[in-house]
Write a protein that binds this DNA or RNA. Sequence first.
DNA 1: TTATTAAGGATATTAAATATCCATAAGGAT
DNA 2: ATCCTTATGGATATTTAATATCCTTAATAA
Lengths: 163, 163
Amino acid sequence: MQLRNQVEWALHCCGILAGVPDGRYLPTKALAEFHGVPKEYLSKALQALSQAGLVESTLGPSGGYRLARAPEAISFLDIVEAVEGKASTFVCTNIRFNNPCVPKGDCTSAARPCAIARVMWEADKAWRDRLKATTLASLGQTLMTDLDADTRTRIAGWVADHS
Amino acid sequence: MQLRNQVEWALHCCGILAGVPDGRYLPTKALAEFHGVPKEYLSKALQALSQAGLVESTLGPSGGYRLARAPEAISFLDIVEAVEGKASTFVCTNIRFNNPCVPKGDCTSAARPCAIARVMWEADKAWRDRLKATTLASLGQTLMTDLDADTRTRIAGWVADHS
DNA sequence: TTATTAAGGATATTAAATATCCATAAGGAT
DNA sequence: ATCCTTATGGATATTTAATATCCTTAATAA
Ligand code: SF4
Ligand code: SF4
C-alpha cells in the first residue's frame, strides 16, 4: 500500500504556494520546474487541489495558482484527501457473508460492521487524525528551522520571480 | 490508496485459526471454502503469514495451518505487515533535490528527512501503533459480544470438523 | 503405496497509477 | 482587436501493481 506520488507533489506545491506574495499567482510551469516533475501530470494534482477548494486559479499571463485559505486553515489531511480521496484504506468486501455457519439473511453483522473492519477503520482514523493535526502554517515554521536563512531567501526570491 | 484484499483474508483466517483445537491444523482448502475466496490465491497470503512466523504448517492429510503463537502475542499489525509489507505508506522521492534554490551537495536535508516526510511518517506510525494495540485475543473477545451463542457454536463445530 | 497438503515458481489477467496529448475557454499583454 | 499565456478537462497511451490461476516438488499421514 503506497500513497501516489501526486501526494508528495501536492504537499510540496502547497508549501511553495504558501510563500507566494499577496495578489500573485504561481503557474503550473513554475511549480513543475521547481520540483523537476512533468508539468502535464502535476497539473492533474493541482486540479484536484482546486476542486477541493484548497487553491484558486486564474487564467492568462501572470495566471496560475495560489492558496484559497490561510496556511493555518489547510491541513495535511486536506491535501492528502484532495489527491488520494477520502475512502478508507481498508475496504471490507464482507467475506463473512460467505461463512457457512451464518444463516443467510440472519447476519447480525449486516447492521453493524464486523469487529475486524472496526479495528482497521480506527487505525485509518488515527492516521487521518495525525494528518489533520499539521497545517501548512506549522510546516512553514518547521522549515524555518530546517533551512538556513540563505536558502530561504533564495526560495522566496525564486517564487517572487515566477509569480 | 487501498490495502489489498489479502489483508482482509489474512485477518479473517487468523481469527479462525485462533479457534482451532490444540494439536490440530486447518488446511487452506477449508479456509478458502469458509470465506468463499479462491484457494490458490489465499494460499499466497497464508504463505506470507507462515514466512512471518505468525502461523506454522504441516504437510500431508490432516495437515494445514495453526497459529505459531498465542493469540495475545499476535497483533493486527503483525498480520497486516506480513501481507502488505513494512514499508511506509509515504515514499519520499526527494524531489527537493531538483529544487533550483538548493545548491547541489549542500542539501542539508540529505542528512535529515524533510519536514513533509517527517509528518507523513508520523501519521504512518500512528496507524501502525493503533494496529499494534489490538491482538487476536482482543478480537476474540469482541466477537464474543458481536456474535450470538448459536453462531459461535456453529463456527466452532465447523472448525473442529475440518481440522 | 497412495492420497493429501504446503511451498513456491511461472504465468496470465485485470485494474490502477503514471504520463502525455489535445481541444477549449478565459485572461492579460501588446 | 489580436496574440500569447494559462487552467480545465477529456481522451488516450504506457507502465506498474494487484489479482488470479496453474503446475511442480517435497513432505506427511493414512
Ligand atoms: S469480518 Fe469484517 S472485514 Fe471481514 S468480511 Fe466481515 S465485515 Fe468485512
Ligand atoms: S520535501 Fe520531503 S517529501 Fe519532499 S522530496 Fe524532500 S524529503 Fe521528500
